[in-house]
Design a binder for these strands. Sequence first.
DNA 1: TTGTAGGCGTTATCAC
DNA 2: GTGATAACGCCTACAA
Lengths: 373, 373
Amino acid sequence: MTEKKRRGRPRQAEVARLAGVSQTTVSLVLGGNKQGIVIHEDTRRRVLEAARTLGYVPDPAARRLAAAQNNLLGVFSFTATFPTDPAHSYYPFLVGVEREAAARGFDLVLFTGSSTGGAGAEAPGALERVRLADGCLLFGRHVPTGPLRRLVEDGFPLVHVGRRDEVEGLTWVGADYVAASAEVVRHLVAAGHRRVVLVREDDDAPASTDREAGFRQGLAAAAGGEGAGGDQGVEGDQGAGGEKGVEGAVVRLRAPAEELTADWVVAQRAAGVTAFVAEETDTGAAWRALRGAVARAGLRAPDEVSLALLGSPPPDLPADGEATGFDIPRAELGAAAVRALTDLLAGRRPGGTLARCAFRPGSTTGPPPTATT
Amino acid sequence: MTEKKRRGRPRQAEVARLAGVSQTTVSLVLGGNKQGIVIHEDTRRRVLEAARTLGYVPDPAARRLAAAQNNLLGVFSFTATFPTDPAHSYYPFLVGVEREAAARGFDLVLFTGSSTGGAGAEAPGALERVRLADGCLLFGRHVPTGPLRRLVEDGFPLVHVGRRDEVEGLTWVGADYVAASAEVVRHLVAAGHRRVVLVREDDDAPASTDREAGFRQGLAAAAGGEGAGGDQGVEGDQGAGGEKGVEGAVVRLRAPAEELTADWVVAQRAAGVTAFVAEETDTGAAWRALRGAVARAGLRAPDEVSLALLGSPPPDLPADGEATGFDIPRAELGAAAVRALTDLLAGRRPGGTLARCAFRPGSTTGPPPTATT
DNA sequence: TTGTAGGCGTTATCAC
DNA sequence: GTGATAACGCCTACAA
């Protein structure tokens, strides 16, 4: 086929011939010489000179092969949404991942099959491909525990970004959604709200569970004791209130979209609900549903109703940048994940990471309206 | 040292042992088997089965060394700014790259040293790492032509994103900055402006050259013939005007920042300049300098002065989203680059690509103020 | 149809 | 100090 690459890429052997030494010596001089072997300054100079005139550059493949390490960190994402949809995307994490990986001398492998919205991640064995890297970072709201468990059992270095306890022995780094969500709720209660509703998606991803836990915790703290109500469908009613009269309810979105109507919003307000919070997910479904319903009900935040988002608004809704909520330190998390992974590779036990999310005051919350409806 | 990684990275030899065949047979079954050698269905099945249970994945370094392909496309970026600086970043391109690569069954390797602002890209041989991949995409305002030429001469498949003619034989896909810039200028002239100044950086990257060419072309078209003035420093005066009295001048930023003062803006306006355009670069320096100077001069667009950007505003200036200018179809370009690269890999000659940029009307331009100063 | 042997370019282990 | 020699994992003649 293609003339073979040969000639044009000098190897150590040629450098050796030119310098009149053995190939081993060339390797010693050019390579780090980690073994601390002493070499004549003359020899050394000759080798360097020869390498320079020949324009010698080490072959990365050979180098990695010999080193029995590829200096490659994988990035695999199990994503619900299509990866090119800007609404999802692990790119924000990627900047931290890249920075840290670069600092540690690793290149990155983006496993695309992973994110081909269905075709890839499901494909049996798709995940197996990560073995080509020295270790791998995992992203996703849900993960296929079966194949993953196998990788873990084989001792393949893996770090999941986001809490993930389903798989025994899987290392993860995450953000403290519980504390951050609680803080948002406290903010609402402090502003005077007494009845708050959380809108969330219907699947039980750790990211959702944590947010709900934080929501309840925030209410409980405000109430001075007990937590909020239980899970209900859209038509569900409020949960038990706390001692200070602080009450909360959780609404699960059965279908991805349009489940929340203007009527529902009106009914909630009639029942005394003055603030709504929605969880952030990769699709942003809860938040979209909430703000859509509120808009259709003709209500405006923060004057007529308070809205908060447990996270950041989806990138395709830049106008929502001022929503009250919290910011996930994505780049930081990405970097922390890389550190954990390299720890694993070095045989060290990575220290646990639970990054703090910064509260974002925003402008969609305020005191509850004095008059009702 | 560290127990060696082994165990957890199955080799063909182990698959062979498990399947009760030789390592060659494994290679034949698992590798493409390009030679069309026929293998017993039984053997084949046994090998496949063994590979699956062991979770075998070929080692990319070894494959490359043996001159085979890895289904890996590289991404290497020569960037001036620090890669983690959101102001720059090739991420917008990456979504297109990833989508197209996934569609064609390739994974991506992000060569990180590439963008470590200095440490990586400069290191001799840093670029050589791309040889681990089957081919590579290149990004950057400037590139080290030496090392690049070498790869090209070796026939390594490379595609540069953005026009790049310095390196003979290098394939590139780009956006038509000339036409897009001319369109912006025509827009200004059509609005009534007669004296326009282009602010650009001082290096001669193709991206800058093209924009200036478009600027001149736009003026020339408006003037019904001749182009605009020549290059000048900040203190330079206007170039020759066209027949309809349309004049333009080009100002180069000598230093990255603060070169443009309020006084300069005032002087320009006194000289009859009613519109300014700035080129977009990875740092956004020209645009920042221009809008800063205009702001300090106390002028507001579009009422007192018209401002346009030859490109999109930097991501860290979201408020500038409404600047008149044009949008580079980054994802499209990324995808086109992948197509070109896979064409190269398949031995096909990639068709040239010069993507069209969409004009963005924005709200920073309007008719020139009727009264002066 | 399957196995044996050699090589790709480096690094690492020993003798010399 | 320096140089054979043996991996590293895979591919591909060529032999059986």
